[in-house]
C-alpha cells in the first residue's frame, strides 16, 4: 500500500479525573499534510485529549511524534523539563484567545514569542517573520501593533494562527477555534486554514463539537463518545455514512 508513517501517534490514552474516566483508551494517528477532525459532544473527552497532545495534562498510554531526536520516545513518560523541547514541534490554538495570546501586548509581539523562544535575537528579523506569519493568516497588517484586546474575535483567532505558523511546527492543534465567530467569519477563517494546509503542507488536529466546522477542513474524522473512539474514517464518509449510533445521532441532529 502507501508506505507512510504517521507524524503523530497515540495509543491507549487513558485519563482519569478522580473517579471520572475522561478517556478510556484512545488511539489515533495523524499523517503528514492532513487535517484530522475530532468530533464529540461535551463529556466526550475531546478537549482533554488535545490538552494531553499538547503535554498540558498527564495521561497513561503512549504518545509518539515522528521527529528527529524523539523517535520511539513515549512523550507521556518525559519529565517536565523535557516538555519545552517537545512543544517546539507543536502549536496550539486555544478556544479562548486570551489563553494563547498576551491580550495587552501588540499582536505582533505574541506572534514572535515562539521565535524568541527558539533563540532569534535580531529585532528586525523578528518583525519581518512576525508580519509574514500574520499575512499568511489573512490578518490585516495595519493592525499588527494593536493588542488583541482591541481586536474582534475572528482577528484574535488569526493572531493565534499566525503565532502557530511562525513556529513552523510539525502539528497544529486547534481547540474549537471558531467559537464565538459568526457564520461568515467562521467560514472565512476555516477557508484560511484549508488554504494554509494546501500551501504550506500543514498537519492539523481540529477539535470541534460542530460538524459543519469539521466538514470544511477535515480529511479524516475521529468520533469520540464518553472517552472512547466510536468511529473513524474519511470525513465525508463519517458524515454521510455514519455507522455508530452516536455518530448517526450527531449527524442527524445537525440537519
Amino acid at each position: 500500500m502507501l508506505e507512510e508513517r504517521p507524524i503523530l501517534q497515540v495509543r491507549g490514552i487513558r485519563k482519569r479525573f478522580g473517579d471520572r474516566h475522561a478517556l478510556k483508551g484512545v488511539s489515533l494517528e495523524l499523517y503528514p499534510q492532513e487535517v484530522l477532525g475530532i468530533v464529540g459532544g461535551s463529556g466526550s473527552g475531546k478537549t482533554t485529549l488535545l490538552r494531553i497532545l499538547h503535554l498540558e495534562e498527564e495521561a497513561e498510554g503512549e504518545y509518539f511524534l515522528n521527529v528527529p531526536g524523539l523517535e520511539g520516545r513515549n512523550l507521556l513518560a518525559l519529565d517536565r523539563y523535557q516538555v519545552p523541547e517537545v512543544r517546539r514541534w507543536l502549536a496550539m490554538v486555544y478556544q479562548d484567545p486570551s489563553r494563547g495570546l498576551r491580550m495587552d501586548f501588540a499582536s505582533l509581539t505574541s506572534v514572535v514569542e515562539p521565535l524568541i523562544l527558539k533563540g532569534e535575537r535580531l529585532y528586525e528579523a523578528l518583525v519581518a517573520q512576525g508580519l509574514e506569519a500574520l499575512e499568511l493568516a489573512d490578518f490585516p497588517l495595519e493592525r499588527a501593533g494593536s493588542p488583541p484586546k482591541e481586536l474582534s474575535q475572528g482577528q484574535r483567532q488569526r493572531v493565534q494562527i499566525a503565532k502557530a505558523l511562525a513556529k513552523k511546527p510539525l502539528v497544529i492543534l486547534l481547540d474549537e477555534p471558531t467559537t464565538g465567530l459568526d457564520l461568515l467569519v467562521q467560514a472565512t477563517f476555516l477557508d484560511t486554514l484549508r488554504t494554509l494546509k494546501r500551501r504550506l503542507g500543514l498537519s492539523m488536529i481540529l477539535v470541534s463539537h460542530d460538524l459543519s466546522v469539521i466538514r470544511m477542513v477535515a480529511d479524516r474524522i475521529v468520533v469520540l463518545y464518553e472517552g472512547e473512539v466510536v468511529e473513524e474514517g474519511l470525513a465525508d464518509q463519517v458524515l454521510e455514512d455514519p455507522q455508530h449510533p452516536f455518530t448517526q445521532e450527531l449527524v442527524g441532529a445537525k440537519l
Partner: peptide, 19 residues
C-alpha cells in the same frame, strides 16, 4: 531559571522596542 528560559524578558523587550 533552571530551564534558562528568559523569553518573557525578551518578549517584554520586544514590546518596548515595538511601542
Amino acid at each position: 531559571h533552571a530551564l534558562g528560559d528568559y523569553s518573557l524578558l525578551w518578549v517584554d523587550l520586544f514590546e518596548d522596542h515595538l511601542r
